[in-house]
C-alpha cells in the first residue's frame, strides 16, 4: 500500500505530458495546411495553384480556328509543321481579344536566319544558307513566301 502513497505526483506528471501533447496537436492543426498530405509529403493545393498560371502561348489549335486560310497555304509547304507562334510570338492575348490586340508585322531578315543561318552543328539535311552571300541584302520574302517557302516556277506566290 505504502508504495502508492505518493501516486499523485505521477498523475500530475501525466497531466503535464497530456497538456503538452494537446498543445502540440492544436498548434499543428493551425500550422499544417489542410491539403498537406493529400497526395504525398507536400501541399496538395499547390498542384492547382501551379496549374492556374495564365497562358502566354495560345497554341496552334486556337490559331487555326480562325486562320484557316493560312493553314491552307502552309499545308503543302515545308513549314507545314512550324506552329504559328514560333514566328509570330506569344499571342494568347490576341486569341482572347482579336479586335484590340493585333500581332506585329514580322521582319523576315531577323526571323528567317534564326533557323536558316548556316552552322556546322545543324543537321546536314536542314536547309541552311550564309545569309550575307545568299540574297545580296534582299529581304527573304522578296523571293520566299514564309508560309510556304519553296520558290515555284512562277516566282514567289
Amino acid at each position: 500500500m505504502n508504495a502508492f502513497k505518493d501516486a499523485g505526483h505521477l498523475f500530475r506528471l501525466a497531466g503535464v505530458f497530456l497538456a503538452g501533447i494537446l498543445l502540440f496537436l492544436v498548434i499543428r492543426e493551425f500550422l499544417v495546411p489542410k491539403s498537406f498530405g493529400e497526395y504525398g509529403h507536400y501541399r496538395g493545393a499547390a498542384l492547382a495553384e501551379i496549374a492556374a498560371r495564365p497562358l502566354h502561348y495560345a497554341g496552334h489549335d486556337t490559331c487555326e480556328t480562325c486562320h484557316a486560310d493560312v493553314l491552307e497555304k502552309k499545308k503543302d509547304g515545308k513549314h507545314a509543321h512550324v506552329n504559328c507562334e514560333t514566328c509570330h510570338g506569344a499571342l494568347a492575348n490576341h486569341a482572347d481579344d482579336p479586335a484590340s490586340v493585333t500581332p506585329q508585322k514580322l521582319d523576315t531578315a531577323v526571323l528567317c536566319v534564326r533557323c536558316h543561318e548556316a552552322n556546322a552543328a545543324k543537321p546536314r539535311g536542314f536547309p541552311q544558307v550564309v545569309s550575307a552571300d545568299h540574297s545580296n541584302g534582299l529581304a527573304c520574302d522578296t523571293c520566299h513566301q514564309p508560309h510556304s517557302p519553296a520558290i515555284t516556277a512562277g516566282g514567289a506566290k
Partner: peptide, 22 residues
C-alpha cells in the same frame, strides 16, 4: 514545370509548341 499549367489544359509545353522542327 513541364508547363504544368498548359498540359493540365490539354496543351503541349511552350518549348514543344514552338520547336520548328519537332
Amino acid at each position: 514545370t513541364l508547363c504544368y499549367h498548359r498540359i493540365r489544359k490539354g496543351l503541349t509545353t511552350a518549348c514543344c509548341e514552338n520547336c520548328p522542327t519537332g
